[in-house]
Design a protein around this nucleic acid. Structure first.
Length: 887
RNA sequence: GCGGGCGUGGUGGAAUGGUAGACACACAGGACUUAAAAUCCUGAGGACUUAAAGUCCGUGCGAGUUCGACUCUCGCCGCCCGCACCA
């Protein structure tokens, strides 16, 4: 489908003036700019409203997802502004990150140069959308004026004990000498080099987010204006579980190893009597100790490490273990000895890195037990099963039931048994302390923030042989990235920079080295919303500004950030509160996650992706098929998928903005699909949106023509049609306001269409003549219509507003006031049902009593026919709603 | 495996438990035009039937609650998303 849009000045024959979006949009954008319409300051007298869309990565080109995201945010911002709020609506750039480094390598440009050029290009594209953004507050996270504050806060956090260093495993690409993110490891190999990825241990910086697990979890309940789905995802991610941490005594430990017991964590203390083995992680300290003298163990552990960390690899991995020969003693019966294994499926960083296995009631343990021929003793018996005969086959029983084969726990429910077992463990002693204690565990891990890369915020610390690791003193900040870098060696250019990393220790004056790691870019985006409040302040935040503007009242972005970005930001805000940079814990009061922009995909006969421009679509429904435009060969219509370059189903917004204008693109993005759902991009849809742009312009033009020439006035307009038009206008006004407040933009659009149809019908029904009241109502309808389209199609609306004779800008005009009395109708039409089936309609005074409604309903012809002489058993009258006659 | 969501015409979708299909796209017919485009008007869930009207069926399938269910409950089927060896 080639775009066959019409040029605006196509036909010299037309006498109907067409709206020239290209000229108009540029003109109004300039007018807003010159008037500094959207620049805001703190104004304690006004209520504030902070609208924020997730800031973009400066890839160089905006995509349709941006258009949708920013169109939605702009509707909210402009609407709230019209409602009298002091609206903060800023924009910035999430400008550090890998694409710049990749581009740098491919095109031999400096990441900074590449990034700033992209920012300039994207700023222009965004500006052409006509967004009501305060551009004076623009920030870029890669700019030292931004990241120096991040460094200062890092040092504050460090001093507040929120940050620590520890050894941690990374995916290491031995060819590129670089650390890879999990998603960059494909089938155990580096995505760029193809080399087998190794697990390496590096000392890295961590934020203590896990200390805040409970707070982050609990506070989710206060986030009432967040989607339930996102709260659930975060809840699952935090992963709270209640269990028991306990010690198993060890026997048969090699002489030179100091281990009298092993700590392990379980949520199923009730199943202790079903235990048939214990297992520790290959990374467990005991495993490390054992490996130093046992080559078999060393080999096994190495084997486990070779297995990738990718989720698929883990998923498919077979459960494997190695018997250490050590015996673990059952805490309730010291005659029971369990073999202690090192097992590849036990995670070191959850719980204590050690477990007991109860195969009958845990699938993983069952798989393991079957493989190594261990006992499978059921201890929880499903209802209606006999403990003597109940057996577990290849599927562990994880349901409810009563305990059996469990001594003092026999006959208890799972809940009771958990409690009893925990109490017994607490009362028993092991080496002077309780053998077990109840413990809450979280899945959430501490946040590792070190990245072995150049294009990120330098971590402001130095390493001195004498003094150790020291934060860079405040007066020496920022630690800026060196401009001169070479890429002749693989790996992080900072790490082998000839001068940058060498410094003098500020404490001892001796030689020291800078930290060459940079921050995870999620840090950059964890506080930008706070920086927007005072983007040029000398401190990270200005308390007056953040106290006025925060929290963000409406945050809008993609669901893909449901967990990490939003959770990190919530944590970071807490850290900022502790260190006195903000005065609140939760940064985002209202959150909305919008759907993606998707498009059909097409494939040629030989399996190559085809772009939408390369195919013709014929037929509809089941007969729908495609052919290649060039050759006429049949093509396959594929799934509707997220726009992506690889599937060639992208539409470039800049083309659309040029051809149709921003208002058309915005209007289309807001129409039809509910904003939280995916929207399918179609050519027909855009054209439909564009037709409405022109239609609205003509509608206003018609009014103006009629005002100049109202006709003879001989035929008086009926007061009823005038009232009807006014009622429709004000009803729509109320409805559109409610729709925008609820972010139901598609409904607002439909309501505006409806009013437009009403106005057009009114105009054509009163073709010849309009008297004074009619003309006034007509004019009022058009004015209010234009005010309602203002937040969605701002340029066209300004143009119409001006044409309607207003001298000040629509952007500065308040939202129209609904005349309440017009919404109150005297007569209403309700449905009359017989046995739940609609048989008639009844128009009746709104104030009619139940009895009146009933009498009149029963007298309707259609009702009498439907009743067919049968006895009426009951009549349900819901005032102003419905009548249901039961026979 | 665990958690969540969705399923309505040819299409996107609308509908505080109260007239299902608003609004839009696509389609068809008409007007305007030498013609087309644009625009305007009209039509339309399916089946049956009609002079007008009307009747029946219909929100993935099956049950239930209710005077009344797209909406609430339960059980299936299908699709989508998130997490996933978290003991």
């Amino acid at each position: 489908m080639a775009r066959n849009f019409k040029k605006y000045s196509s036909s010299p024959m037309t006498n109907i003036e067409r709206y020239n979006a290209r000229e108009c949009e540029a003109r109004w954008q300039k007018a807003w700019d010159n008037a500094k319409t959207f620049e805001v300051e703190i104004d304690p007298a006004k209520k504030k409203y902070y609208v924020l869309e997730m800031f973009p990565y400066p890839s160089g080109r905006i995509h349709m997802g941006h258009v949708r995201n920013y169109a939605m945010g702009d509707v909210v911002a402009r609407y709230k502004r019209a409602r009298g709020f002091n609206v903060l609506h800023p924009m910035g750039w999430d400008a550090f990150g890998m694409p710049a480094e990749n581009a740098a390598m491919e095109n031999n440009v400096h990441p900074a140069e590449w990034t700033y050029a992209n920012i300039d290009a994207m700023r222009e594209q965004l500006k052409s959308m006509g967004l009501s953004i305060d551009w004076s507050r623009e920030i870029a996270t890669c700019h030292p004026d931004y990241y120096r504050h991040q460094q200062a806060m890092f040092i504050d956090f460090l001093e507040a004990g929120l940050i620590y260093r520890k050894k941690s495993k990374v995916n290491w690409d031995p060819v590129d000498h670089t650390v890879l993110a999990n998603e960059q490891v494909i089938d155990g190999r580096g995505w760029r080099s193809g080399a087998l990825v190794e697990q390496r241990e590096l000392v890295q910086w961590f934020f203590k987010i896990s200390d805040y697990s409970e707070d982050l979890l609990q506070s989710l309940e206060t986030l009432e204006r967040w989607p339930e789905k996102v709260r659930l995802m975060q809840q699952n991610w935090i992963g709270r579980s209640e269990g028991v941490e306990m010690t198993f005594a060890l026997r048969n430990v090699p002489a030179d190893i100091d281990a009298s017991g092993i700590e392990l964590y379980t949520t199923r203390a009730d199943t202790l009597y079903g235990a048939s083995f214990c297992a520790i992680s290959p990374d467990h300290p005991l495993a490390t100790q054992l490996s130093s003298e046992n080559s078999e163990i060393t080999a096994f552990i190495a084997d486990c490490h070779r297995l990738g960390t990718s989720q698929e690899a883990l998923e498919k991995a077979e459960k494997r273990g190695l018997d250490t020969g050590i015996k673990a003693v059952h805490p309730f019966d010291d005659t029971i000895e369990l073999p202690l294994y090192i097992a590849n499926f036990v995670l070191m960083d959850y719980g204590t890195g050690a477990i007991f296995g109860c195969p009958a009631h845990d699938q993983r343990d069952l798989d393991f037990a079957r493989k190594y021929n261990l006992n499978v003793t059921p201890v929880v018996i499903p209802p209606n099963e006999d403990p003597a005969t109940f057996d577990v086959g290849s599927e562990a029983y994880v349901g409810e039931g009563l305990l059996a084969n469990s001594q003092f726990l026999d006959g208890l429910t799972i809940g009771e048994a958990k409690k009893a077992a925990a109490e017994r463990l607490e009362s028993q002693e092991f080496e002077g302390r309780p053998q077990g204690t109840t413990k809450v565990n979280y899945r959430l891990r501490d946040w590792g923030v070190s990245r072995q890369r150049y294009w990120g915020c330098p971590i402001p610390v130095i390493h001195c042989d004498k003094c150790g690791t020291l934060p860079v003193p405040a007066q020496d900040l920022p630690v800026t990235l060196p401009d001169e870098i070479t890429r002749d060696k693989p790996g992080n250019p900072l790490a082998h920079h000839p001068t940058w990393k060498h410094v003098t220790c500020h404490r001892c004056g001796g030689k020291a080295e800078r930290e060459t790691d940079t921050f995870d870019t999620f840090i950059d985006s964890s506080w930008y919303f706070a920086r927007f409040c005072s983007p040029r302040s000398e401190t990270p935040t200005d308390l007056e500004a953040v106290n006025y503007w925060l929290p963000v009242d409406q945050y809008i972005g993609g669901i893909e950030h449901a967990i990490l970005h939003l959770l990190y930001s919530r944590f970071f805000t807490r850290a900022m509160e502790i260190t006195g940079h903000v005065g609140l814990k939760e940064p985002f009061d209202g959150l909305f996650t919008q759907g993606m922009v998707v498009h059909e995909t097409y494939k040629s006969k030989d399996g190559n992706w085809l772009s939408p421009a390369e195919v013709n679509i014929l037929g509809e429904g089941e007969d729908r098929c495609a052919t290649e435009t060039a050759s006429g060969a049949p093509a396959a219509i594929g799934n509707i998928e997220k726009m992506s370059k690889s599937k060639r189903n992208t539409i470039d917004p800049t083309d659309i903005l040029e051809d149709y204008g921003a208002d058309t693109a915005r209007w289309f993005m807001l129409s039809d699909s509910p904003p939280e759902r995916d929207v399918i991009w179609t050519e027909a849809g855009v054209e439909g949106a564009h037709r409405f742009v022109q239609r609205l312009y003509r509608l206003i033009g018609d009014l103006i023509a009629r005002q100049k020439n109202p006709g003879s006035g001989a035929e008086k307009s009926s007061s009823q049609t005038v009232l009807a038009l006014r009622t429709a206008t004000h009803k729509t006004l109320a409805a559109v306001g409610a729709s925008i407040e609820g972010l139901r933009f598609n409904r607002a659009v439909a309501q505006i269409y409806e009013l437009t149809n009403t106005i057009a019908a009114f105009a054509s029904a009163n073709k010849n003549s309009l008297d004074e009241p009619a003309l006034k109502a007509y004019s009022e309808a058009c004015n209010i219509l234009v005010q309602m389209t203002g937040p969605m199609m701002p340029h066209l609306s300004e143009e119409c507003w001006q044409a309607l004779g207003h001298t000040s800008m629509l952007a500065d005009k308040g939202w129209p006031v609904t005349e309440g009395e017009l919404l109150v109708e005297d007569n209403i039409t309700i449905a009359v049902q017989v046995n739940g089936k609609r048989r008639a309609e009844l128009t009746i005074a709104k104030s009619a009593t139940k009895e009146e409604v009933e009498t009149q309903a029963l007298a309707l012809d259609n009702v009498i026919r439907a009743l067919d002489g049968k006895t009426v058993r009951r009549v349900i009258v819901v005032p102003q709603r419905i009548v249901n006659i039961v026979i």
